[in-house]
Amino acid sequence: MGPEVFAVLVWTVFAVGWAGVLVIAVAVIRELALLVITKRRAGGSAADTVQHRPGEEHGGERS
C-alpha cells in the first residue's frame, strides 16, 4: 500500500463517519423539535381545556 492509497483510505473512512453522524444528528434535531412542538401544543390545548371551558372566558358560545 502506497502513501497516497493510505491517505485516501483514512479520509474515506472519516467521510463515511461524517456522513453517518450528520444524518443521525439532523434526524435527532428534527425529531426533538417535533417532540417539543407536539408536547407544547398538547400541553397548551390541555391547559385551555382545563382553564377555559367552552362558553366561559374565551367566549366558546360566540363560535
Binding site: 483514512v10 473512512v13 472519516f14 463515511v16 463517519g17 456522513a19 453517518g20 453522524v21 444524518v23 443521525i24
Partner: peptide, 13 residues
C-alpha cells in the same frame, strides 16, 4: 445507520 455506517469508522480510525 447506527451500528454499521456511523459506528464502524470509530474503531477503524
Amino acid at each position: 445507520l447506527g451500528t454499521v455506517i456511523a459506528w464502524a469508522p470509530v474503531p477503524i480510525l
